[in-house]
Design a protein around this nucleic acid. Structure first.
Lengths: 333, 333
DNA sequence: ATGAAAGCGCTAACAG
DNA sequence: CTGTTAGCGCTTTCAT
């Protein structure tokens, strides 16, 4: 592979001049610039990013570590991050931690070793290993889930309020035994959505028994399917369900279908995260929609700001979620 | 940030010894190893991957360039790639070209500059810029879509046959005016699925008029929605639709819903790519399912093999797709 | 405006 | 078994 000295030799100049010409730095004789450009072209020269970054002690790549590539919520965030990063001349590499702290740790190590300029992460849990980054001074911003106990840049969503609203909506629709399928303990969104659910029960003067509450893995429908089935097999089963994210909603809906139960008419359902196919279901699915794309753009902007100025105070941005009611949460379809 | 010489100084040895101790290379006195490890630990030392890679002239990261992160088919491939890569000690970074040749080109440039060990790509089209990679000797394997005119490693799916089978199935079910919504010209899967559709028409002795054929963008439902609406507004509209991928299927189904048309009963529908929610729709969606995860694992294995041995002959692996019939392609729901 | 030379942090000969 | 030394390819003073 052609190196900078090959180009220099061919253009009959020094490597310093090639470097300057190629980077548009300082003033170089236009004639030389032309010669350098020609030589580079002829040789099919591609600068070695490793060497450049090593020398410059910086990289123009951001790492985005998300907990589930298959979840549309996270891919929407990814597109937001990407759009902002691209405009600022950064590339973003996506890493899929799969809700697995070990994988997360591995990717953060890689990010550190490759000296990325910054990372945006949805921490798998409180046992996250982001500290290796912050200790070394790599800028980090958390999305979706906070970095508990650390002061850090974050972009979150007020999903507790949204969960309360959704639950209240079910209650208002005449459902009396509202259940909740949420994510693992320690995952903040799972805990918050459960808390919001309980807030609504309390506000309605209902007992906050945990009878109709189940915790499952966030990233696969199968657990939620089993849990929902479990709930529905109870002597006194719930007549409505608040489900905490999209993959688990699929599982819960499968459980209903298995038993010939119709969302809305038989069991009210509201799930977190809107998806294009929510309206294609039978009946259309009521959802709490989060501004995923904006989470991404906002997080990227925050990260770039911190990269530019490491001394700025950590800030937390909390966005709102919106309840969209469709037939799955109405008794009369 | 602590460097290898800091560690060396602290352990009272040379940098070479530190390097050897940390990499488990050659034989180092166990006592020294212990001292080095301790020093590294105390300093919170993380090797600089840039320097290491620059020196070694190799990187343990693979790039996966997919054309649409929001499409479950591609994320399933990603998980396949990741699982195999991880086992072999490689990390994989995901790049989203968004069906956009410019973005694709930018990411391939980055991959080249960062000297990744290899790349797996679903080319946006025939005008792909993968040649910059192959010219420089970076191993590449194509997935989903072939690298036309080049001999390269590839993992493809025989979707033409599958499209024919799906169309024949619709015809056999009594649908007479089968239409087709496919992707852009030049995208091989789009062309192949259209060809398979036409194969079936011909086999049935039907005229292969293009009247009921529409080409749309692959990655957004909106175009397909408009196109399907267009088709359905024809004086003699199609009574069935073969839709070439998942995002476009969403659009097509939206168009039907808009018009109060019921899949199956009013318009037969078969779409490419199975998704967890296909069975939750009303009625359940008939699909052609592709072995996406296996595409990923197979591609990763091929790439690793080529990285290990650059001289091996390019090979093409073609996997089969399977038709799964559900109610959306049956007249009587 | 251009070139010579140093050095980013690491690994791999080569000696000893 | 360990240390010395020479770069990997690039950018950036410092001279000229």
């Amino acid at each position: 592979m052609a190196t900078i000295s090959d180009v220099a030799a061919r253009a009959g100049v020094s490597t310093a001049t090639v470097s300057r010409a190629l980077n548009g730095k300082s003033t170089v004789d236009p004639q030389l610039v032309a010669r350098v450009l020609a030589a580079a072209e002829e040789l099919g020269y591609h600068p070695n990013g490793l060497a450049r970054n090593l020398r410059r002690q910086e990289t123009a790549v951001l790492a985005l570590v998300i907990s589930d590539v298959a979840n549309p919520f996270f891919t929407a965030i990814a597109r937001g991050v990407e759009d902002v990063a691209q405009d600022a001349g950064y590339s973003v590499v996506l890493c899929n931690s799969d809700e697995n702290p070990d994988k997360e740790r591995r990717y953060l190590d890689v990010a550190l070793q490759e000296r990325v300029a910054g990372v945006i992460i949805s921490p798998t849990g409180p046992a996250t290993s982001v500290d290796v980054l912050t200790q070394r001074g790599t800028p980090v911003v958390a999305v979706d889930r906070p970095l508990t106990g650390r002061s850090a840049d974050q972009v979150l969503v007020d999903t507790r309020a949204a969960a309360q609203e959704a639950t209240a909506h079910l209650l208002a629709g005449g459902y009396r035994r509202v259940g909740c399928v949420t994510g693992p303990e320690g995952v903040r969104t799972a805990d918050d959505r459960l808390a919001g659910y309980q807030d609504a029960l309390r506000a309605a003067g209902l007992p906050r028994t945990g009878r109709w509450v189940r915790r499952v893995e966030y990233h696969l429908p199968s657990g939620a399917r089993a849990a929902a089935g479990d709930l529905l097999a109870l002597p006194e089963p719930p007549d409505a369900l608040l489900v905490a994210n999209n993959p688990t909603a699929i599982g819960a809906l499968e459980a209903l279908a298995e038993r010939g139960l119709r969302p809305g008419r038989d069991v009210g359902v509201v799930a977190f995260d809107d998806v294009p196919w929510a309206t294609l279901m039978d009946p259309p699915l009521s959802v709490v929609t989060q501004p995923a794309y904006e989470i991404g753009t906002e997080a990227a902007r925050m990260l770039l700001a911190r990269i530019a100025d490491g001394t700025r105070r950590p800030s937390t941005r909390v966005l709102a979620a919106t309840l969209i009611t469709r037939a799955s949460s109405r008794r009369t379809p």
